[in-house]
C-alpha cells in the first residue's frame, strides 16, 4: 500500500502475512481466520473492525501467542520488528509479551485479579521484565497512573480493583499495559463496556499514546464510530477474512466492499434525515463452521453473481483501498 500515514514513519513494526488459525471440530478442521495479512507501522493506529465471529479477537490473541486451545493450528507469519513470532518458544514469547507488545481487554471490571491492589499488579508486570526494586517499580506505577489521568495516583495504586469505577479501572489497565513502554499496544474492545462519556475520555487517551509513549496501537472494535474517531487506517473483517482495508477517512467516505457499505448504512444516523426503515443487511454473519463456499458475504449481498462462489482475492480498489470483491466499486473513482 503506497499510502501516506500522517502520524507514522514508514518503518513497519508488525507484519502479518497469511495468518491462518484453525481448530479441529467434529473430525474436520474449521478455520477461524484465513489469510490475514497486514502491516502496522510505527506510531500508527490501525482499527480492526468486524461483527461477532469475524475473527478480530482471534487475530489479536494469535499475535500475542495467547491461543492455547488444544489442537489449534496457527500457520503464516507474524513478524514483529523483523522477529518471527509464530512458533517462537514460550519463554522467548513471554519476554516479548507485556514488554514489547501489551494487550488490554474488553472488560476492565474483570481484568484485574480481585485480591491484589491495582498498584501491586502494575508493579508485578514492571518487575517481571525489569530489574527494579518494589519501591522503584511503585514510583513508576504512580507516575504512569498520573499520566493516564488518574486522580490521586498514590492512593489509587493502593486500592483494590472493585473500589474503582469502570473508567478508572480502564485507565489503570492501560497504565499497566504501558508500564514497560511497549512499542505495540493491542486493545481488544477497550471501550465497549464503558459509558459514552467515559469512552470518549479513554479514546482520547489512546489516540495520544503515540505522542506520549511512541506506541502503535492495534484497536479491535465492532464500533465504526470508534474507528473513525481514533484510527489512521482500517481493516474490515468478515467471517474470518479481510473484506476491505484502507485509510480510515477514505474508507468511511467511499467504502469499496458491499459489506462495508451495507454495514455503514445499517448504523442509524445521528444527524440528517431519519429513514423510516434502516437499510438493514438480511441474515446474520455465518459462524466459522457454516461459512459458505466462495465469498462469505455473498448470501447476504445484493449484487452477488455466480462468480461469487469462488473466493475473491484482496485487490486494489483505488484511493489506496483494497477490497476482496469481484465487483468492488473501484471503477467509479470519486474525488
Amino acid at each position: 500500500m503506497a499510502v501516506n500515514f500522517p502520524h507514522s514513519t514508514s518503518q513497519p513494526l508488525l507484519e502479518v502475512k497469511d495468518l491462518c488459525v484453525s481448530i479441529p471440530s467434529y473430525g474436520r478442521s474449521v478455520a477461524l481466520i484465513e489469510h490475514i495479512s497486514f502491516t502496522l507501522r510505527e506510531r500508527e493506529i490501525l482499527g480492526l473492525v468486524g461483527e461477532s465471529g469475524s475473527g478480530k479477537s482471534v487475530t489479536a490473541t494469535a499475535i500475542m501467542g495467547l491461543l492455547d486451545t488444544p489442537g489449534l493450528k496457527i500457520t503464516g507469519s507474524v513478524r514483529f520488528r523483523g522477529q518471527e513470532l509464530v512458533g517462537l518458544s514460550a519463554r522467548k514469547m513471554r519476554a516479548i509479551r507485556g514488554r514489547d507488545i501489551a494487550m488490554i481487554f474488553q472488560d476492565p471490571m474483570t481484568a484485574f485479579t480481585p485480591v491484589y491492589t491495582v498498584g501491586w499488579q502494575i508493579d508485578e508486570q514492571i518487575m517481571a521484565h525489569e530489574r527494579l526494586s518494589r519501591k522503584q517499580a511503585r514510583e513508576r506505577t504512580v507516575q504512569l497512573l498520573a499520566e493516564m489521568g488518574v486522580p490521586d495516583p498514590t492512593r489509587t495504586a493502593n486500592r483494590y480493583p472493585h473500589q474503582l469505577s469502570g473508567g478508572l479501572r480502564q485507565r489503570a489497565v492501560i497504565a499497566m499495559a504501558l508500564s514497560c513502554n511497549p512499542t505495540l499496544l493491542i486493545a481488544d474492545e477497550p471501550t465497549t463496556a464503558l459509558d459514552v462519556t467515559v469512552q470518549a475520555q479513554i479514546l482520547e487517551l489512546i489516540s495520544t499514546l503515540r505522542d506520549t509513549h511512541g506506541s502503535s496501537v492495534l484497536l479491535i472494535t465492532h464500533d465504526m464510530g470508534v474507528v473513525a474517531e481514533t484510527c489512521d487506517s482500517v481493516m474490515v473483517l468478515y467471517s474470518g477474512r479481510i473484506a476491505e482495508t484502507g485509510l480510515a477517512e477514505a474508507l468511511f467516505a467511499h467504502p469499496r466492499h458491499p459489506y462495508t457499505t451495507a454495514l455503514l448504512n445499517s448504523i442509524p444516523p445521528f444527524y440528517g434525515e431519519r429513514p423510516h426503515r434502516l437499510p438493514a443487511i438480511a441474515g446474520t454473519p455465518p459462524a466459522p463452521h457454516e461459512r459458505p463456499a466462495g465469498c462469505a458475504f455473498s448470501p447476504r449481498c445484493h449484487d452477488a453473481q455466480t462468480i461469487c462462489s469462488t473466493i475473491p482475492p484482496l485487490s486494489p480498489a483505488g484511493n489506496g483501498q483494497q477490497a476482496a470483491c469481484f465487483f468492488s466499486t473501484s471503477g467509479q473513482q470519486e474525488h
Partner: peptide
C-alpha cells in the same frame, strides 16, 4: 478461563507465578 488470568498471561508472567500468585491465591 477468567479474564484476569488472561491479563496475567498477557503481562508476560511465568506460568508458575500465574498459577501461584493469581490462581492459587484466588
Amino acid at each position: 478461563q477468567e479474564d484476569f488470568m488472561r491479563t496475567a498471561r498477557a503481562k508476560g508472567l511465568s506460568p508458575a507465578r500465574i498459577l501461584v500468585f493469581h490462581g492459587l491465591r484466588t
